[in-house]
Design a protein around this nucleic acid. Structure first.
Lengths: 218, 218
DNA sequence: CGCTAATCTAGAACAAGTTTCAGACTTGAT
DNA sequence: ATCAAGTCTGAAACTTGTTCTAGATTAGCG
């Protein structure tokens, strides 16, 4: 007994973000996908990684378990997709108020701290997403990579660079490493918020170090 | 039908490393613990995180499942303990041939690359240990922290410092973050060995930046 | 030695992620 | 409007981490 049984004429509609390649989704499919992601985020916000139980997600989003698995082949895939989703929001939000620091390093640090504060508002959700991200194995690489690219864009945005040098890209990579790992230590209660702040500010100094403008190499 | 049924007179023997506090272990308990860790590492070496199945570990180490859980309250605890174990070896090995670089940054990078090469020899084992480490939740914090401290010691060793400044400690923290995260990207196939090398070298530049000797701040 | 508490064992039971399957529903094309 | 192919559903089954239990075994002590 299908819970939904109405029209769906045109099909092939694709909402905002064209989910990479793969066959485009029907309106109702897009809606299902959205319901699932919403349920996922909601459950995650409550109890973090463990609270996102596939059966519950399926139920909350009014979808059969098998269908859930057709959309997201594993819990990790689901949570990483949830992260992609949240990252888009975040990027939009961050864009609105560009960071005001003098140097690129300051602006990046400021941006990351802003993102960090957003995560602090939903620590459980952050837990679920970050744990999924670092636990992901090779089968999730494309999706994780996408998240990584998105993060890179955010950081480069904050730096305000058109065409960064390879050195600067390396610095950005290291910043991302630090960002992820620092989040984990915070989430697992091994580092304070203050400590995370220090770590971020510390690593951001690398940016100045690689800025062609002030070439004061060591 | 107990597989072991021999003597164990004296008890209270504690082998090499006094496992923190907690009641000291009997000889046979110490032996069990060792068998378990050995089985864990062995299974991990084969198939990584997934191949370390609690039932298999129990069987391989000739211990009942319940006993395994008494020694290590979860799979994550077990793998983190396995990592502690391996880290000790590693530290011992690294100690023998101190790095030869000119600057502290070079020495640290060299040491980490040496450790990295060791991990490359047992990529599956590395996978199991690193995934466990980053997936660990609050209940494993003490153990994870211990691993972190041990890593810090190794890095400070490589730097050759007696009393590092707070700034230098921050740099070391960031280096550890980068080290862990870079390992993860490598393990999940999202970064090449060369890329990891670059990231490590990049982050190690932070050390020079915080070296009171050459005070060429930006 | 003989006793009591702690530990260990085998095995069942439970929980949550994942897979599978038969049958109903949709879709896209004719 | 109709049909083949692809989707979705509900439910059961399977896997592996974790917990629980009753009954042996072992450790430490008087």
């Amino acid at each position: 007994m299908p819970a939904e049984a109405k029209v769906d004429k045109v099909a092939k509609v694709d909402a905002s973000t064209p989910r990479s390649d793969s066959p485009p989704l029907t309106e109702r499919q897009e809606a299902r996908r959205r319901r699932i992601l919403h349920a996922s985020a909601q459950l995650a916000s409550r109890g973090g990684f463990d609270a996102v139980q596939m059966r519950e997600v399926a139920e909350s989003s009014q979808v059969a378990l098998g269908t859930l698995y057709r959309y997201f082949p594993s819990k990790i895939h689901l949570l990483v997709a949830t992260m992609q989703d949240q990252l888009e929001h975040m990027h939009g939000t961050l864009r609105k108020k560009p960071p005001a620091g003098e140097t690129a390093a300051e602006r990046v640090a400021q941006t990351l701290m802003r993102a960090f504060r957003a995560l602090q508002r939903e620590p459980h959700l952050a837990d679920a997403m970050v744990r999924a991200l670092t636990f992901a194995d090779r089968s999730v690489s494309p999706e994780v990579d996408q998240v990584s690219r998105q993060t890179t864009v955010i950081i480069l945005d904050a730096m305000g660079l058109e065409n960064p040098t390879p050195e600067q890209l390396s610095a950005v990579r290291v910043i991302e490493h630090t960002w992820h790992s620092a989040l984990i230590t915070w989430l697992s209660g091994r580092a304070s918020i203050a400590q995370v702040k220090i770590d971020i500010e510390t690593v951001c100094r690398l940016i100045d170090l690689t800025d062609p403008a002030n070439d004061s190499r060591v």
